[in-house]
Design a protein around this nucleic acid. Structure first.
Lengths: 218, 218, 218, 218
DNA sequence: AATGAATGAGCCTTCATTCAT
DNA sequence: GATGAATGAAGGCTCATTCAT
């Protein structure tokens, strides 16, 4: 009775889930198929059978991570297109943080780690990340910022503002190890995450609105 | 007392310089001592003799990179403490970009790559980075932002604003591979670097000034 | 009594035919059951089911190759026992070349390759080759040479002459890769095959007749 | 004091000698570097260090085999250019047999096995074999046969006769396993080798002289 | 201070075979 | 009869490290 709507065999699914963790934590090269197979309790030859080779497994794991992340944290949650853009920006930032950096206690930010590793040593996985993760995210953010800035503003300016927003979120979570060493008080926690999200929201809104002011007067 | 006019043997110096490039470009694990020795034209056993092991060489190379970077791009260049804070923020951002991300054409952003790698897989090198690179940088930026915001603002707010500024610079350069795939027009170049630096400066100034307003009126 | 009109299941037959090609071209070890199964469009477990293991399939393929070869190129074709022995030797050499080395353009000399491989690393297949291929061939050739030499000549001499004839044919075709590298002009072709067959015939006839002469006078 | 004129380290030499045997007996693919290293009592990584990879070792072993074989059995031994061609052909055949097939009891015919394997599955080694082994051998034999046939005979005819001579020697020794199965009396031995060499010599001389006759009369 | 040689551990991959259905 | 999934045993190669000089 099990698995009646499960297109992935148990073994294959188990391997993919383990691989997601291991690849995120160790990177493509450092991760070993041996470790993955051991953790998944399968024979090492199973990788070749199900995924062809290590790279095939890596791409499968990356795509799986994306799928799960998008299902858990859809981009348009928490607001709808009729909401004012300020509110939608706030919702976007919170959702983006949850999706990319994880939010539940103990949940490891695998997707973010995969993205960062791909930026250091790009593989075919970068195309997956850009095409299926970054592009739709940028699209959603662009729409909000375009509405905040008004139609007269150039696309280039919108791109730059998108980068400023995304860049802030990346930094606060990605550079967490440094921040904790510098300021032990800012230890990661659910409430600290909310503080950061609020800061990014207001910092960005303030900046963007100033950009937009010239067109309306001042 | 030995080596009074030769604190580093030529061999050792040569190895360190090569290692800096190779470690930055390939990461700790992927870099091979064989390649480093070949490029430095030294015997493979020299690493063990001079640095103990691969990790010892890595730390030596990291420290060397920091020294060179700080000598080439001192933090306070381009302005002095008597300048208005807006101007000093602008100078800081430009200098930070040059130091961390490189500025000359073809120059590899070794220091940034080392930092990013340490963030993914912290080693002893992270202490070096935090203590000798990040802390003074944050200190300088904090001073500028504190002056912009006024004394009434909490240290926490200042830290958050520092993060927002640094985060933006990191993103634009670190995520360069993604940005190029998404927007081929924004290819990296000296002029594009200037555009980005100006954007970060005005975006941040706008945001910070808005933060500061409430205290003086509104 | 089953399979009265289907002694070999289609699947089994298909596998054998594919295996003959693959084993001849790649040798026993280098050939993979996976490739054979893929080319034959059968499941990989079918080999185990039908033939026990890889070696069983190999032997089956070898026997099939022999059967086909003998059906296509019967030994006594092109002449009959009433013909003069010179003519029969000529016919034998041509037929032997066709059978062992192939004659049609693009036809791979599978049987020869199998024989050569068995000579390098004898398996049970060598018994099949000796008993069902070599022995009748040697018998036919012996009869011709015996007639050419006369009854007084020892069996040992006949055996040596048989070896000389067979040896020449083997060399010219088997060492083809070397001959082409040494003398690019002697590239393999239908006409070149005929030139070689004629040479072997006259060379051998000349030699054998000289052998025979002493007995009749001089 | 040892090895004062020994350009090869003991280890390297040991590996090459073992590799020659193993590659000849098992072929390039079937031979394993693990077995070679075990027999040579060296670490498996020594192959990478000294020869780059398996193929490098293979080529080194092949060249070593050639060198040893040529030093032990120089082509022009047993006769000089002033001898009559009949005598020189006899000497050539005996020497060729010794060189390629081995002559001492228990001596394995490694060089022949290597050649045969290269003919089945050519690698870069075939170029070595053709260039450094086959070409000079054919050159020496050609000279003898040209003298036997006279200048009027075409180069093509000389090539064909060379092939006939070489082909016979190959067959008798290469097909030894079959010959022993067919005619147990013809077991390999020093005296049998002499019988074969004499047969090939007279068989070939008879044939070649008949070729040459037309030019002088008949 | 420096070197060439050697080592052992580990990695990815491939293959024939077998199991459960 | 036939299949997809799974297994264990090797195999070639790479790497950091160490040894003897």
């Amino acid at each position: 009775m099990k698995g009646q709507d499960n297109p992935l065999s148990d073994t294959k699914k188990r391997i993919i889930e383990v691989a997601g963790k291991v690849f995120a934590e160790s990177g493509f090269r450092n991760a070993t198929v041996r470790e993955i197979c051991k953790l998944a309790s399968v024979n090492i030859a199973a990788i070749n059978y199900h995924f062809g080779d290590k790279k095939g497994l890596y791409l499968a794991a990356l795509k799986h991570l994306r799928t799960v992340s998008f299902e858990q944290y859809p981009l348009d949650a928490g607001s709808d297109t009729s909401s004012p853009p300020e509110e939608r920006l706030k919702a976007f930032i919170m959702q983006f943080i949850k999706r990319i950096h994880g939010c539940r206690e103990g949940e490891s930010p695998w997707l973010r780690m995969m993205i960062i590793r791909e930026l250091m040593e790009p593989t075919e996985g970068l195309d997956v990340i850009v095409g299926e993760i970054v592009r739709p995210t940028f699209g959603a953010l662009s729409a909000i910022i375009r509405e905040l800035l008004g139609k007269q503003v150039s696309e280039k300016t919108i791109r730059l503002c998108c980068g400023s927003v995304i860049g802030q979120t990346f930094f606060f979570f990605y550079a967490q190890p440094i921040r904790e060493k510098l300021f032990p008080a800012d230890r990661s926690s659910t409430s600290e995450t909310k503080v950061i999200a609020d800061h990014i929201t207001s910092f960005s809104l303030n900046a963007i609105k100033s950009y937009a002011v010239p067109k309306k007067g001042r």
